[in-house]
């Protein structure tokens, strides 16, 4: 809602096949975003999804209400950030928490509402079902997995925030498993993310049940990663006689 300063640096650490970040949702606040960032985003000729996080229920409601009056295309409810002390993940790790916040924000906006889920839960299927039952139009997962890296020379955590969110190829198998479990429980679209770096990873996500795939960390290694993934997906579909990615969504053949 208001400007967030974010966490002190270092905010990033490299791990085996992954990275930990602890940015802490640094952002200029909703009013600044609507006035200064949104006009530029709308000029980019693409769908604009605003990811929102408040410190309290009231803040979530108010942010969604203000965005509802703009030309943002969709709203993604962030109830899974591991790097802020208030809000974020606090609302996303129990079914009751997910239900309450989703129902509240649902009342604040008629725009398509995506709920971004945390992997730091014991039963992702239950959480996904709670989001759908509370009015979510789609779910996206996974956000990062809480992790920690310690510098053995200084005996201090590498991140100033001590812990951070793990992303990158290291989390792909966890993400694929959770997308599969969540997709089995809901009929709304599932957006899959978490460690997707290649077209093969994207195919796995689609087979597991994702209708769309997001790419984050891979952009740090290669700014063209999303384009390579799209190209590779097209070839895979052609070679296997599929006309559209829709034909492979949720088509994993599970061993009985």
């Amino acid at each position: 809602m208001l400007e967030r300063m974010g966490n002190p640096p270092p905010r990033i650490a490299e791990t085996s096949s992954g990275i930990l970040n602890s940015v802490g949702l640094q952002n200029p606040g909703i009013d600044y975003f609507i006035e200064h960032n949104l006009p530029w985003l709308k000029e980019q000729n693409t769908v604009v999804i605003a990811n929102i996080a408040g410190g309290t229920h009231d803040e979530y409601y108010e942010i969604a209400r203000r965005l509802d009056a703009t030309d943002v295309d969709m709203i993604e409810l962030n109830i899974s950030c591991p790097n802020v002390h208030e809000g974020g993940i606090a609302f996303g790790t129990s079914c009751m928490g997910v239900e309450n916040i989703t129902k509240l924000v649902r009342r604040a906006t008629s725009k398509p509402l995506i709920v971004k889920l945390s992997p730091n839960v014991s039963d992702i299927g239950e959480i996904a079902a709670a989001a759908e039952a509370s009015g979510a139009d789609a779910i996206s997962l996974i956000n990062t997995i809480t992790g920690m890296k310690i510098d053995i020379k200084t005996r201090r955590p590498l991140l100033k925030n001590n812990t951070g969110g793990l992303s990158g190829p290291a989390v792909l198998p966890v993400a694929v498993r959770m997308v599969w479990q969540a997709a089995a429980r809901v009929s709304i679209p599932v957006i899959g993310m978490g460690g997707v770096a290649t077209w093969q990873d994207a195919v796995e996500m689609l087979l597991a049940g994702a209708c769309a795939v997001q790419v984050g960390t891979a952009n740090f290694t290669d700014a063209y990663a999303p384009l390579s993934i799209i190209g590779g997906l097209d070839n895979y579909l052609n070679e296997n006689g599929f006309k559209s990615v829709r034909e492979i969504v949720k088509k994993v053949e599970i061993w009985q």
């Binding site: 002190p8 640096p9 270092p10 990033i12 970040n21």
Partner: peptide, 26 residues
């Protein structure tokens, strides 16, 4: 210098604390 990820101002990782209009910001 600060630990960095994207390099282009998108990921907000390489924070440096500055004074801006009499308040602190990254």
């Amino acid at each position: 210098e600060e630990r960095m990820a994207c390099g282009v101002g998108a990921c907000l990782v390489c924070a440096c604390k500055v004074k801006e209009n009499d308040k602190e910001a990254y």
